[in-house]
Simulated scan of single mutants.
Amino acid sequence: MKSLLFLVQAANLEDKLKNAPDDSYQIGLIIGSFVPFIALVAIAYWMYYAAKKRENNP
């Protein structure tokens, strides 16, 4: 199911990149597609850091 959803999202991104009016739109589209991933990585790191800190501080 997840792989199917990923393929659908990738196809939409490719279509948008093909029909982009200029380079700045393409750059914004690529950055916008990575922002959710970067946000999730940052939240995961913050949770790991908080748990590690709590473990070392009895």
Rank of each mutant, 00 (worst) to 15 (best):
K2S: 04
F6G: 03
Q9P: 08
A10K: 14
N12W: 06
L13A: 11
E14R: 12
K16I: 04
L17D: 06
L17T: 11
N19R: 12
N19V: 05
N19L: 11
A20H: 02
P21N: 03
D22E: 01
S24T: 00
Y25F: 10
Y25Q: 06
Y25A: 06
Y25W: 03
Q26E: 15
Q26N: 07
I27F: 15
I27A: 14
G28L: 10
L29M: 14
I31F: 04
I31R: 15
F34A: 13
P36G: 00
P36Q: 02
F37Q: 11
I38Q: 04
A39S: 09
A39G: 06
L40F: 04
L40I: 07
V41S: 07
A42P: 08
I43M: 09
I43V: 14
A44W: 02
Y45D: 02
W46C: 02
M47P: 00
M47V: 06
Y48C: 03
Y49V: 09
Y49D: 12
Y49G: 02
Y49S: 13
A50N: 10
A51F: 01
K53W: 10
R54K: 15
R54A: 14
R54T: 15
E55V: 05
E55T: 05
N56K: 10
N56G: 07
N57K: 07
N57R: 06
